[in-house]
Design a protein around this nucleic acid. Structure first.
Lengths: 340, 340
DNA sequence: GCCGTCCGCGAGAGCGCTCTCACCGAGTGT
DNA sequence: ACACTCGGTGAGAGCGCTCTCGCGGACGGC
């Protein structure tokens, strides 16, 4: 890691432009209160010297870092097999970039990492944190809130006690699930089943609730546990067919699960959608479009979720009247393809 | 973005421990040259006050940042549909974490972003950069090298001129391709085809070269262009079947392509592997294991690639004798499943 | 027992920036 | 003509840290 060439300082620019350091600083930071000819001269000097402000020096005095931590707890590889996270990251990145903020990525696995992340955030290296709290029992949110860093969560956090005023962005999992199930019912299906996601995640819980909202008791026995993976979907679908051979529709907690279910249905000789209609959730394109038949599913605007999280973090203070309910829930839309 | 509570400074710790700032600094940075009882006292003071060093102040004088930029050029969404990038990121993250470095993620799309990234890197905010240079004509590598930041590339960069002493980590794409094709030949196949990847990426070029190494002229007319996507794989497979109906084996440039090809083969009533054997590349688990039949493919240790990139960046200077060839190529292994 | 050595520690400068404050000159009101 | 304001500029302090340097005390050699 060789040292780079010495970079020009404010001082150097000031000398070149024949003004004081203070003036250069003003120009660099927007140029308010400096007369035009001077601004011009300073700009040129900056240009000629290739001056770039030293962020460390600036942070030292402003106590701002123009950097935001993105914390992703990913105990399993699941997060990564999943375009979900990547899309969200992209939304976040765009928004941060638009506001000249940097994205510091913190991946955690295991308990030790939690401490590390907690320490880092408490260290005041970043102006805020965007946290994906994937599991109900995750200690991370608590740690982070204790660190006193402004935080926005991705997905409704799963705890109910202790932490208040938590800001989060989520999809309307429950409403989307309702739409999906209603669609199936509207198709005339009467034996509608649900393969759940991993129920230690609120998204899975909420989708299950949406299913129950529509099906009520009628759906009670048609709920099978899955885990958001294709393998889980296969397992659940087998169990379902064994237990209730007359099932004529399946609402799967996500597209991967649906893909697994589809495979089992084909294997067992059921036609989709004629015999069994199938709906997924997420609208992960590479999956949903490539299944056979293409998957009807519930779309959420994942990238927008990311962007919104970032926006909330950066501007949250100003825009939010105090006492505003802190969760933002984005709508979902049903995307009709061939499977239902 | 509320201000956090005022954090204790070195001065405060020094006062509490009854020593000088310098001594506390020494202890915090490893404690060499400080006698045990003092070290103990300082440690306790640090503990009690919850002192965390101010990274900005430290960077200001040391000119180190303990931060590394990861630059991902992702003009298309492709990168993100792809666990590849995520796995590599994970390897990088692990290695960086192990050395107390932070990961600053820079996603770029489009030309303007290039300038932005160039400026950022030139600004000396990070100690080094890990760059995924996906396309042959990417201007980013040039920009970065000009910025004078130590850099390691992911994947062999595609240019041949201008830039020297480029450090990169890559898989043995060519060798892996050779293994795959040899395996097909060993199976007794004589009409072995290749569906290429996007040929503006070196990985695709190298895999094609590997194919040619084994097949020579015999394979000339059995090469079809793909683009690393399932749709591209389908298109190419159709073209291939139309042009050479007697094809009995396909080496696809990656698993996604192979998945597309498999679909077309099924659609056209060819049995895999009986009529046509198929091999992919990458061993992306969610894909390779879920295809029908499960895909024989070439595995690369993607996470290890990431880890190695980080290691090279952090320790490159010390370990590398000057003049060492700068590319590190990781081996691949053929994973036999059912498709070939 | 004296001088030279060496180790442990503290004093102080300074990293590059922002920001407050004082200053200065040009305009305004009387 | 005078004081008075006010916007534009410069001087200077100081953010929290590291690092060099110099001082003092313990220790070994003669």
């Amino acid at each position: 890691m060789t040292d780079t060439a010495p970079r020009p300082t404010l001082e150097a620019v000031a000398a070149r432009a024949g003004v004081s350091r203070a003036t250069v600083s003003r120009v660099v930071n927007g140029g308010d209160g400096v007369r035009e000819p001077l601004v011009e001269r300073v700009r040129r000097a900056v240009e000629e010297l290739g001056y770039v402000p030293n962020q460390a020096a600036r942070s030292l005095v402003t106590r701002r870092h123009d950097a935001v931590a993105v914390v992703v707890a990913e105990p399993e590889t699941r997060v990564f097999a999943d375009p979900f996270f990547a899309l969200q990251l992209r939304g976040i990145s765009k928004e941060l970039t638009a506001h000249d903020n940097q994205l510091v990525l913190l991946l955690t696995e295991g308990r030790d990492d939690h401490a590390r992340v907690g320490r880092y955030l408490a260290g005041g290296h970043v102006d805020g944190a965007l946290v994906f709290s994937l599991h109900l029992d995750d200690p991370l949110p608590g740690l982070i809130q204790r660190a006193g860093v402004p935080t926005v969560f991705g997905g409704r956090p799963g705890w109910s006690d202790g932490l208040r005023d938590v800001v989060y962005v989520d999809s309307d999992n429950r409403g989307g699930a309702r739409d999906a199930v209603r669609h199936l019912v509207g198709l005339g299906r009467t034996r509608v089943a649900h393969i759940t996601g991993a129920l230690d995640q609120t998204s899975a819980v909420d989708r299950l609730e949406g299913f129950k909202d529509v099906m009520g008791d009628a759906g009670r026995e048609l709920v099978v546990r899955g885990d958001f993976t294709p393998a889980g979907g296969e397992r659940a679908m087998r169990e379902l067919l064994d237990r209730c051979p007359d099932v004529d529709a399946v609402f799967a907690a996500n597209d991967l699960t649906a893909a697994g279910a589809l495979r089992v249905l084909r294997e067992r000789g059921r036609r989709v959608p004629e015999d069994v209609a199938v709906i997924g959730f997420d609208d992960m394109l590479p999956i949903a479009e490539q299944t056979d038949p293409p998957l009807t599913t519930v779309r959420q605007d994942i990238e927008e979720m990311g962007r919104l999280m970032a926006r909330l973090l950066l501007h949250g203070d100003e825009e939010t009247p105090p006492g505003t309910p802190a969760g933002v829930v984005l709508p979902t839309t049903l995307v009709r393809r061939a499977s239902a």
